[in-house]
Design a protein around this nucleic acid. Structure first.
Lengths: 149, 149
DNA sequence: CCACATTAGTTTACCCCCTATACCAATTCA
DNA sequence: TGAATTGGTATAGGGGGTAAACTAATGTGG
């Protein structure tokens, strides 16, 4: 079980460091001066799944609805999302990503890839396989944990 | 190279989700209602390496010195760190962790362990080995990246 | 059919994080 | 000794988040 403890500590440290790296502005990747990781997460959802309601986004991003409200306001001011008319229930609204939004998303994803791929350079191919196996499982466990909240 | 891209995307998603899980207050782990992850990081450094100066902490935590100043103020108000007199240069100050600080650190680390060990339950032993190998390397790369800033 | 409860979203107040800037005090340097 | 540098703090402003109050629309039960 000592191995397991070691793995958890490593996991913890590394995911913390990686998230900080991700948040770090400047240093060659100007996109993240304009957009936050959470904002990228939101427009990525819109890009993948199409127009969504704030309530749905709050569930997917595992965050309070007022956080989404605020996030959408900022994204809208920058012209990266737009409201679309929806028929039916007049309480719910729908947002979708704009052309400009798709552009900034593309830039952000390239920056992320650039920034992170150096981390895996020295890893052997068979270890990459193991990595994917492990992380696919860990991700499932994380999702399961989220649903229990 | 497709495998690599897959690994990076997974890594990204998972470290983001893990950090969010870590930040999530409430849900069974009350310690994190009282202390933030960054604050835990700081007192952990103090616990491991003894009394340190704000400037040094800023370098270790890779953060602006004013962020450390603020963090120490909060920790001091709660009685988890204390100033110690230092001889020599009267500009630099030294902080160290208190008994209460050690206690809250212990609680936080237990909570973290509890929260994360479920994630690795289903991983095979040989995959845990691979995981440790990979993450040790990735951590090195991340550290190298930090030093370059 | 209308009053009451619920639901979707926004706003506000308050917390955390961070950076950059201005500022003070001590130290070093020319 | 006067000027530049260094360590630390405080403030302003912009991210993140929650909770609670509030509006408007939709359901529901008497």
């Amino acid at each position: 079980m000592d191995k397991l403890k070691e793995a958890i500590d490593l996991f913890n440290e590394v995911s913390f460091m990686a998230t900080e790296l991700f948040h770090k502005k400047g240093s060659a990747y100007d996109v993240f001066k304009e957009v936050s990781p959470q904002q990228v997460g939101l427009i990525k959802i819109l890009s993948l799944y199409g127009a969504s309601s704030p309530g749905h986004l709050a569930i997917v991003q595992q965050v309070h609805k007022s956080a989404i409200s605020n996030r959408l306001k900022k994204l809208h001011e920058k012209g990266w999302v737009e409201w679309v008319d929806s028929e039916g229930d007049k309480r719910t609204k729908l947002v979708q990503i704009t052309e400009d939004g798709e552009e900034i998303l593309k830039q952000a994803e390239e920056a992320i890839y650039d920034r992170f791929c150096g981390l895996f350079e020295h890893i052997k191919d068979e270890d990459v396989e193991a990595f994917i196996r492990i992380f696919t499982d860990v991700k499932e466990q994380l999702k399961k944990g989220e649903r229990e909240d």
